[in-house]
C-alpha cells in the first residue's frame, strides 16, 4: 500500500501529467486478470480496479458488459481483491456501495488493505452518506477519492473536496461511463471549480477516450482517468492492445509543454 497523495504529488511536481487507467476485475477471466493489471501499470501512475457489481448505474455499455462477464465467470466484487498481485503502482478500488455495506465497512477496508489497495472510489456514495466509511478508510490508511459533477454547487464542491485525501475526481460530463467522440466542454470548468476548493491533484474522468482527449483535459487538469477505452481494448483485443494505447496516451501527455 502506497501513500497515494505523496506518490501522485511527487509526479506532478516533476511536471508529469497523471494517467490512471481503469480495468474491470476478473476480465478477461480469473487467471488472465493479474497480467492485465501488470500490463496497464507500465504507463500508469495508479490503476483503478473496478469491482464487478450486478447493478452498475454509473456505467455505460462497455464497463457494464465487462462487469456482467466477470460475474458470469464467477468473479464477484470481493473475489477481485483476492486476485490482485503486488505492484509498484498504487491500486485503487472502484466499487458501488452495496458490496462494502454487505461485508461491513470496517471488514471491507481491512480486506482492501490486505489486497494492496491504496484508495477507494465509491460513485454512489455521496458526501452525506459516506462519513463513517471515510473515517474507517482513514483509520486503515486508505485514500478517499471523491467525485465532483458538473452540476455540483460551489458549496458542495467545497464540502466534497475537503473529504478527499488522494485526488479529486472531476466528472467531465453529465452521464455514464463510455467512449465519446469529444471531450465535454464542461470538463475545464469543473476542474477550475475543483482547483478553487482544494490543493489535491484534480483528475478528469468519464468520457476521456483518446490521447487527444487526455491532452485536452490536461491543459487544465493534473491528469486523467481512462475507463471504457481501456476496457474495450482488453475485452476485444487483449491486454497488449490496452498497453499500446496507454503508451500512446503517455507519450502525448509527456509532450505537453
Amino acid at each position: 500500500m502506497t501513500d497515494l497523495r505523496a506518490h501522485l504529488e511527487a509526479a506532478t511536481r516533476s511536471g508529469r501529467k497523471l494517467l490512471v487507467p481503469y480495468v474491470m476485475g476478473g476480465i478477461p477471466d480469473r487467471v488472465g486478470f493479474p497480467s492485465v493489471v501488470e500490463a496497464v501499470s507500465e504507463y500508469a501512475d495508479a490503476v483503478e480496479v473496478g469491482l464487478p457489481f450486478s447493478d452498475p448505474l454509473m456505467d455505460g455499455p462497455v464497463i457494464a458488459a465487462a462487469g456482467e462477464r466477470a460475474i458470469a465467470g464467477g468473479v464477484g466484487p470481493l473475489d477481485v481483491l483476492d486476485l490482485l498481485a503486488r505492484t509498484a503502482t498504487p491500486l485503487l478500488a472502484m466499487t458501488y456501495y452495496n458490496p462494502i455495506h454487505s461485508v461491513g465497512e470496517g471488514d471491507f477496508c481491512a480486506r482492501a488493505v490486505a489486497a494492496g489497495i491504496s484508495g477507494l472510489i465509491v460513485p454512489d456514495l455521496p458526501v452525506e452518506e459516506s462519513t463513517r466509511l471515510r473515517a474507517l478508510a482513514a483509520d486503515h490508511g486508505l485514500a478517499w477519492i471523491p467525485l465532483v459533477a458538473p452540476t455540483s454547487s460551489s458549496q458542495r464542491i467545497e464540502a466534497i473536496a475537503a473529504t478527499g485525501t488522494g485526488f479529486v475526481y472531476a466528472v467531465s460530463t453529465m452521464g455514464v461511463t463510455g467512449v465519446r467522440e469529444s471531450l465535454s466542454e464542461r470538463a475545464a470548468a469543473v476542474v477550475e471549480r475543483c482547483r478553487a476548493a482544494t490543493d489535491l491533484p484534480v483528475l478528469v474522468g468519464i468520457g476521456v477516450s483518446s490521447a487527444e482527449h487526455a491532452v485536452a483535459a490536461c491543459r487544465s487538469a493534473d491528469g486523467v482517468v481512462i475507463g471504457s477505452a481501456v476496457v474495450a481494448r482488453v475485452m476485444d483485443e487483449g491486454a497488449g492492445s490496452a498497453s499500446e494505447f496507454l503508451k500512446g496516451v503517455r507519450s502525448a501527455l509527456d509532450r505537453l509543454p
Binding site: E128, E129, A149, T151, S152
Partner: peptide, 10 residues
Amino acid sequence: GRYVPEALIG
C-alpha cells in the same frame, strides 16, 4: 437515504 452519484444530488 440518498445513495446516488453526485451528479443527481442537485
